[in-house]
């Protein structure tokens, strides 16, 4: 009897091993994993965490930019910003759907966000204090997002990869529009120039922190690389972003607030100063300037919308009854 159980367990173990081998072979061959395919639990939970964090970021990110829609300084600027924030809502929606293919519901994901169990990008815990911040966010934050998302277009999970391809196109519009605001202001009146530089000063470091902790401090990178969820390390992506952005700042006469920033001929890249990791972890752990405000705002909208969602449900139910 005892022997039997042992042998069944062994068979099950072998079977799992086999599944995992097939899975890894597929990954190594650059084939996409689809929702119905077998996948290790760790792969699934890693994806849920990463994609939902990405979705939450799109949604929470609507707040700092939404903050300026009613104050946009021209009709054109207002249309562009409104459309941009609407795009971000669409990205959120799309990513939540990708996440749902892994077997979680949007309600659960929302609950995780509200309970502080799921994170979103810390960049959105910084306040938007002038119109130039709309330029800085588009240019730097969407710019950093693109660097990350371009590499994620090759991620191993099919729905996520396809989502990134679709989203990246819009993000590059956002990046160009943001840069256009900055360029315009940097070449404008003295006050506009000051506002643009101030926005760059405030958003530069938080932007390069968006890529996460240094590789040496990033505990989950191991499996994510093996499973090809992540295709490049945090430090590689960060360097890529900095190299691409420095020239853009120079072109419009703005100065990147890092005295240690220097071209390194040998590496073919910019060396840059020490990131304030204490600030980074502070904001991640809830102590940024707007953490509470952002979450409260989201919860409030959700709570105030409860009766509306209930009504829609009740009405739909009546309709199917009547059919």
């Amino acid at each position: 009897m005892k022997n039997d159980i042992f042998s069944i367990n062994l068979q099950k173990h072998n079977y799992l091993n086999m599944q995992e081998e097939i899975f890894q072979d597929k990954i190594n061959a650059e084939k996409k994993i689809e929702p119905k395919d077998w996948m290790p639990d760790g792969y699934r939970s890693h994806l849920i965490r990463q994609i939902s964090q990405h979705a939450h970021s799109e949604i929470i990110g609507m707040q700092p930019e939404g903050n300026w829609i009613t104050r946009a300084p021209s009709l054109r600027a207002k249309m562009i910003l409104l459309a941009k924030v609407q795009d971000e809502a669409g990205h959120g929606l799309y990513l939540y759907s990708a996440c749902e293919t892994l077997g979680v519901t949007r309600d659960e994901l929302n609950k995780q966000l509200h309970e502080g169990k799921a994170k979103y990008s810390s960049i959105f815990n910084y306040p938007t204090l002038s119109w130039a911040d709309m330029g800085a966010i588009g240019w730097l934050v969407d710019g950093a997002a693109i660097v990350n998302q371009v590499s994620l277009q090759k991620t191993s999970y099919g729905p996520y990869s396809r989502g990134m391809i679709k989203i990246c196109k819009e993000e590059s519009f956002h990046q160009r529009q943001g840069y256009e605001i900055m360029a315009h202001m940097a070449n404008g009146t003295k006050e506009q120039k000051e506002m643009a530089q101030d926005a760059l000063n405030r958003f530069w470091w938080p932007s390069i922190m968006m890529f996460g902790p240094q590789d040496s401090d990033s505990p989950r990178t191991g499996n994510a690389m093996k499973w090809k969820i992540k295709r490049k390390t945090n430090d590689e992506l960060r360097q890529n972003f900095i190299d691409k952005t420095v020239a853009q700042a120079e072109l419009i006469g703005l100065k990147i607030p890092d005295p240690d920033l220097k071209w390194n001929e040998e590496r073919g890249s910019y060396d840059f100063g020490e990131i304030d990791w204490e600030e980074f972890w502070n904001v991640v752990n809830g102590n940024g300037p707007c953490n509470e405000q952002r979450l409260e705002h989201h919860k409030k909208a959700h709570t105030e919308g409860e009766w509306v969602r209930e009504a829609a449900k009740a009405y739909a139910k009546k309709q199917t009854h009547n059919e």
Binding site: I59, Q86, A89, G90, L93, Y96, H298, E304, E306
Partner: peptide, 22 residues
């Protein structure tokens, strides 16, 4: 309508109100 941005009762409705505002 643009004041509704990020405050809608659902994500879909947020998008719809922005759309009309636009």
């Amino acid at each position: 309508l643009s004041e509704w941005c990020s405050k809608g009762p659902s994500l879909e409705e947020d998008i719809a109100l922005s759309n009309i505002s636009l």
